[in-house]
Each structure stands twice: as C-alpha cells, then as structure tokens.
C-alpha cells in the first residue's frame, strides 16, 4: 500500500546503468504513494485526537454525576447510511479506470449518503434537545454532542474532498494527471472508510460504555 515509490538503492529505481539517472521515469513530480502515505499520517493524528477524547470519556464515566443519555434511534439509521456510503465509494473507485461517468455517479451517491448521514445526526440532536438534554446538561451529554460534532466535522471535510473528486471526474485526464486523480481517489476513499469505522467505534462507546 505504501511501498510504491520508495527509492532504495541507486539502480533500483529507474537508473539505466549508463550513469544516467532518472527519477521514477518522469514521475519525480509525483512520487507514487504520496497521497496514500499522507492520508495514513493524517489519520494517525485524527486517531490520537479521538483517543484523547475517548479516554477523557472513560476517565469521567466514573463520576457520580454521570447520567447516561438515552441513545436516539436515529443513530441506527445513521449507521446504515454511512455503511452504505462505504460501499458506494468502493464502487466508484472500481469504476474509475473503466467508466468516468459511472465513477462520477457513484461518487455523487456517496456524497448524498454523506449529506443524509449528517442530516440524520442533526435530527438526533434535535430529538435530544426536545427531550431537554443539552450540551452542558452533564458530562455524558457533553461527550454525546462532542463526539457526534467532531466526527461530523471530519466527515464534512471528507465531503469537500468528494466534491473535489466529483468536479475533477468531468475531465478526461492522461499520464501523470490521471495517476494523480486515481491516487487522490484511493486516498480519499481510505479517509472515508476510516470515518465510517470511527463512527461505529464512537457509537458503540456511547451506547455500551455508560
């Protein structure tokens, strides 16, 4: 996954043996795997932040004032929506090399599912507010809003990236530009799947650890 473009020894990467050296052919501008590596590194940082927040959640869950919030049913719908979006983005990625229009269509479907997910989260917030559960009510409700809000913001970041991919999908690209696009699609889908997994982890934490 990250092995693609690692320079190892002279001669192992494009050197043609006559003392002339080429950097991955003409790909020095874009060493393979750059986006993928970057997304993994970025996700490491995201993990650290959510681990910090989840640890705080577990740390405070021992307090006497801890009152678990009743989990809104809407979350089950959210979960189905985001799982579906992981399927559609995979479909999109598969179609990229074959048919750009289908690629764009699946991307758009993913985007719509992303919107629907965020909408379902807002509906869940609305339901809680109607029940009188606010951000500042007690530590559990605070974490409830915090986790969903922080995850939602990260997902919106992914949606902006999806919009970028969708816009780019209208152009026919060749050579390095096409490679860049496919690398970007791989990297963004990795991020998207991660957000899917993160949601499930947070959901389970809120549901069962209280």
């Amino acid at each position: 996954m990250v092995g693609g473009g690692w320079p190892k020894k002279p001669g192992s990467n494009g050197s043609n043996g006559n003392g002339k050296h080429r950097w991955f052919g003409d790909k020095r501008r874009f060493p393979k795997g750059t986006y993928q590596i970057t997304i993994w590194i970025l996700l490491a940082a995201v993990v650290m932040m959510f681990v910090a927040l989840a640890s705080s959640y577990i740390f405070l869950s021992g307090s006497e004032q801890w009152k678990p919030v009743r989990i809104p049913r809407t979350f089950l719908i959210s979960t189905v929506l985001i799982l579906l979006s992981s399927v559609t983005i995979e479909k999109a990625r598969q179609r990229l090399a074959v048919d750009l229009r289908q690629y764009a269509r699946w991307l758009f479907a993913t985007l719509l599912l992303g919107f629907a997910f965020v909408a379902s989260q807002l509906v869940a917030w609305r339901q809680l507010i109607v029940e009188g559960v606010y951000l500042s009510s007690n530590p559990h409700s605070s974490f409830f809003y915090l986790f969903t809000g922080a995850h939602g913001l990260h997902l919106v970041g992914g949606m902006i990236a999806l919009i970028y991919l969708t816009v780019r999908s209208r152009r026919l690209l060749f050579g390095i530009e096409a490679e860049k696009r496919s690398a970007a699609a791989d990297a963004i889908s990795l991020y998207w799947h991660f957000m899917d997994g993160l949601w499930i982890a947070l959901f389970l934490l809120l549901w069962f650890w209280n």
Binding site: V2, G5, W6, P7, K9, P10, G11, N13, G14, S15, H21, W23, P31, G33, T34, I37, T38, I41
Partner: peptide, 11 residues
C-alpha cells in the same frame, strides 16, 4: 514525514 519517507534521492 511524507517528505522524508517519499522524497529521498536515489541512494
């Protein structure tokens, strides 16, 4: 990190 992992010169 990306630069160091991915942009080193041959050798």
């Amino acid at each position: 990190i990306t630069t160091l992992l991915n942009m080193r010169a041959p050798g």
